[in-house]
Amino acid sequence: MYKAFISVLRKELLLALRQKTDVVTVLFFFLIVSSLFPFAVGPELNTLKIIGPGVIWVGALLCSLLALHRVFETDFNDGSLEHLVLSGEPLTVLVIAKISAHWLITGLPVVIVAPFIGLQFGLSAASLSLLLGTLLLGTPVLSLVGSIGAALTLGVRGGTALTSILILPFYVPVLIFGAGAVVADLQGLSIDGHLSILTAMLCLSVALAPLAIASAIKIALE
């Protein structure tokens, strides 16, 4: 099982190295989306400071949605998704390998870049580091829950648009507590509640999402 897990991870990372375009497009998308808002809202810092965390969080959320098709779609089309099922290893473990690779490729870069984009919104170093923390906790949940939508819409026409319709309602709690933590911190409120709930969501999705994804994949391969 451990060998299978590692080989899935290495295969994904090697593929990402060979095809850097995916990572780069997601990062540029994130940069552009978040720097659009100052043009819409006006340059004065105090308004930007209020909307900053929300904008960056929505940007990270949209990036994860954008990158979702990469998780299973290419494997589904070239037939290598079957190897996951045929291996006999527990599919949920292999699914976790795929999603963690996906998060490392598309989620982590967004999290690393986010604080620099936060500077555009005049956020202080403290709230920037909190933003980093909430994104570190939140983006894996986005990848896990989003992959359920990706697995459900494998091979279905209009897949990416459909996936976002299916999955956005489940992103709401993560967004509420993710962006909410930074806003609460700005207002001086305590944020341990937010962070503990975000961690709880992370544990819940790591435990449950792979089950739904595994059965969705098996259904898609029928």
Partner: peptide, 29 residues
Amino acid sequence: VRSVNFLGHDDGLKKQLTATENLKLMLPL
């Protein structure tokens, strides 16, 4: 499933990887 070797229409190969890499990363699975 562990005792079944299924080979479908699609070759299940990744275009960006070489033949050796494809096999090296597929077979442990």
